[in-house]
């Protein structure tokens, strides 16, 4: 489903070339549960951003769901992100002015769904993520675990094929982090491809496939 061939991403920092991704090739099948691990600066977040079409590669090819998405225009990339990708971030990235329900509805608004349809979908998501009584609270009034649940609900509201999580438990304590991971894994069991970037070994070990990176290259890929 995700097929990267010889993807290279170069950053220029103070006149120096940094190869964040150096000719990376991987295949990730639909429904896989993959962890990407490595020290900071190893390129794991860049890899996730390229997979999520947030970042472009400087060379190489990227095929998603059988279509070549390497050279899509900015607008087309936005559409693919909306329809096929769900992002979960370490710092949640909720819009502070909007309530939990409104944050969850954002992708539906961007998609242009009618309010009635939006409401039923958001209600279902609030139930599924146990947020019903928090629906009208703003992020500042929610606990860390609740915030990440809102973020996950938002990431999955349009039923993406791939869920990309960048240190999803980084800002949570151990117990809450485990709950969030259980939630993500539940989504994986329901068929979503789950890719988690982390430098937490314990967390990475829970995945079914472990990719290790260093200096922009894949040093290990084990199932």
């Amino acid at each position: 489903m995700i097929r990267l061939s010889a993807i290279t991403r170069v950053f220029h920092m103070g006149g120096q070339e940094v190869r964040a991704l150096n000719s990376i090739s991987i295949d990730i099948a639909s429904g896989e549960y993959v962890s990407i691990m490595g020290p900071s600066g190893s390129g794991k977040s860049t890899l996730l951003n390229v997979i999520g079409l947030l970042d472009r590669s400087d060379s190489g090819h990227y095929e998603l769901d059988g279509t070549d998405v390497t050279d899509l225009s900015e607008n087309e990339r936005a559409r693919v992100r909306r329809e096929k990708i769900g992002f979960v971030f370490q710092s949640f990235h909720l819009v502070p002015r909007l309530t939990a329900a409104e944050n969850i509805a954002l992708p539906l608004i961007l998609e242009g769904l009618a309010p009635a349809e939006r409401k039923s979908r958001v209600d279902a998501a609030l139930d599924a993520f146990d947020l019903r009584d928090r629906a009208h609270h703003r992020p500042a009034e929610l606990s860390g675990g609740q915030r990440q649940r809102v973020a996950i609900a938002r990431a999955t509201i349009l039923r993406p094929t791939a869920l990309l999580a960048d240190e999803p438990t980084g800002n949570l304590d151990h117990r809450i982090g485990a709950e969030v991971m259980a939630l993500l894994e539940g989504l994986h069991h329901a068929g979503t491809t789950l890719i988690v970037v982390t430098h937490d070994r314990e967390l990475g070990a829970r995945a079914h496939r472990h990719i290790a990176m260093r200096d922009g290259e894949i040093v290990a890929d084990e199932k």
Binding site: L54, A78, R79, R81, E83, H93, V95, P107, L110, A155
Partner: peptide
Amino acid sequence: TSEIGLLKAIGATAAD
């Protein structure tokens, strides 16, 4: 800025 980044990540176009 980060909010704009988020909107883009969840699929907002430049026009949006």
